[in-house]
Design a protein around this nucleic acid. Structure first.
Lengths: 210, 210
DNA sequence: ACTCTTCTTGACCTCGTGGTCAACTTGCTC
DNA sequence: GAGCAAGTTGACCACGAGGTCAAGAAGAGT
C-alpha cells in the first residue's frame, strides 16, 4: 500500500468514526468521503463496502464500552442493582452515540465484527438478567429478547429527543425498570416470548428506521 | 367538476385509504396513483398535496376508533381498568393500522384534520390518566407526554414485528403498565417531565422514522 | 356533430442515495 | 529523474422519491 493511500484510509477511518458516532451507521458514504477531504471514489477503492468500513472503525467505538458495562454490572453485589445499572447504562450509551445503538441493534449482518459484538451483548444481557431473576429481583417472564427490543426502541426515542429533551429516554427506562421488578409484576404475561430469530428480524427492521 | 374527474378522485381516495392503512401516511404518492389506475399527474391535479389527500381520507380511518376507545375507557368503573384498556387498545390500533399510528404521532402538522384528531387524543389521554391518578392507581409522576411518546415508539415496534411476531408489542405494553401502577413506583422519577412542545418535536421525528 | 373547456397523461425536472470507471496524478523503485 | 504501477478523481450510471407541464383526450353544452 502506498503512503498516500494509507494516509487517506486513516483520514477516512477518522471521518467515519466521527460521523458514525454523530449520526449512526447509515450515514451516506459520500458524506464520510467529503469530511475526510477525499473523493468518494477513493472510499470505494480503499474499503469497497460500508461493512468493511464499519468493521475497521466500530470495534473501538462500541465494543469496549459495552463490555465494560456488562462487567461492571456483574461486579455489583446486588443483582437488581447490576441489572438496573446495565439497562440504564446501555441506553445511555445509545443515547450519546447512535453508533452504539446501531451496533446493539445488529444491523448490517454482513459485518462479521458487528455480529460478534452483537452476540457478546446478547450473552452478557442474558447472564445479567438470569442472575437478577435467580435472585428473585426481576420477574421471571422477562426475556433477553424483550430487553434487546427495548434497546431498539430506546435508540429511536433517544435520537428523536436528543435536541430538545436529551434526558427523556430516562423516564421510559425508569418506568420499564419499575415494571420489571418482581414486586411490580401483576400477573404472568399472556403473550408468548419472542424467539431469537423473531427478535433479530424485528431489530433489523427497527434499525432500518434511522 | 367533470364526471371522470369525480370518478378518479374517488378511485384515488379508495387507493389512498388502503395504502395508508397498510403502510402508513408516508407511502409514495405515485404508488397510490398506480393502485388507483391513474397517472400520478392526475393525483397532483386533483389533490395537490399529500396533506389534502390525508385530510379527505384519514378522518374515517382513525378518528372514530380513537374516540370510541377513549369513551369506552372512561365508561369503565375502575379507573385503572380504564387506563389499562386505553393504553392497550390504542397500541392495538397502531399495530393493526399504520395510519392510526401516524395520526397519533401528529405527523404532517400541515394537515388541519390531523392536528384536530391529535389534539383530541391528547385531551382524552390526559383525562384518562388524571382519573387514574386521582384514584391512586397510576403513579403521579406519569404524564400524558410520556404516554404519547410511548405510543410513538410502540408504533415502530409494532411495525417492525408485524411479520414475524405480531403480538410482541403487547409484552412491552404490559411491562409498562406494571411499571405505571402506584404499587410498582419505587421512587419518584429524577428526570423532569417533557413539555408539550418537546413531545411534539420528538413525535414528529419519531414519525419520520417510518 | 362541433366546439370549448376541463381533465389526463407521461415525459421530464430536481435531489439524494449507492456504485463504477476511464483518464489523470502521484508515489516509489531503479 | 524516468518509468511504471498504484492510487485518485469526478463525471457518469441507476434508482426512487417529489413535483411540473405541454400536448393530447374526453366530457359537456349548443
Amino acid at each position: 500500500m502506498r503512503a498516500d493511500a494509507q494516509r487517506n484510509a486513516e483520514k477516512l477511518r477518522t471521518a467515519a468514526a466521527e460521523l458514525f458516532q454523530e449520526r449512526g451507521l447509515t450515514v451516506p458514504l459520500k458524506e464520510i468521503a467529503r469530511r475526510a477531504g477525499v473523493s468518494h471514489g477513493t472510499l470505494y477503492n480503499l474499503f469497497g463496502t460500508r461493512e468493511a468500513l464499519i468493521d475497521e472503525v466500530v470495534a473501538n467505538l462500541a465494543a469496549d464500552r459495552l463490555d465494560e458495562t456488562a462487567e461492571h454490572a456483574l461486579a455489583l453485589q446486588d443483582a437488581w442493582e447490576g441489572f438496573a445499572y446495565y439497562v440504564t447504562r446501555v441506553c445511555e450509551l445509545q443515547a450519546t452515540g447512535p453508533a452504539v445503538a446501531d451496533v446493539v441493534s445488529g444491523r448490517y449482518p454482513a459485518s462479521e465484527c458487528l455480529m460478534l459484538i452483537c452476540t457478546r451483548v446478547h450473552g452478557a444481557a442474558t447472564q445479567i438478567i438470569q442472575r437478577a431473576q435467580l435472585a428473585g429481583a426481576v420477574r421471571p417472564d422477562f426475556t433477553v429478547e424483550d430487553l434487546l427490543l427495548f434497546f431498539g426502541t430506546n435508540t429511536l426515542l433517544a435520537r428523536a429527543t436528543t435536541d430538545t429533551a436529551p434526558q427523556a429516554w430516562r423516564r421510559q427506562v425508569l418506568y420499564l425498570l419499575d415494571g420489571l421488578s418482581t414486586k411490580a409484576a401483576q400477573e404472568p404475561l399472556p403473550v408468548a416470548p419472542l424467539t431469537q430469530h423473531q427478535m433479530y428480524d424485528a431489530l433489523g427492521k427497527l434499525a432500518g428506521m434511522q
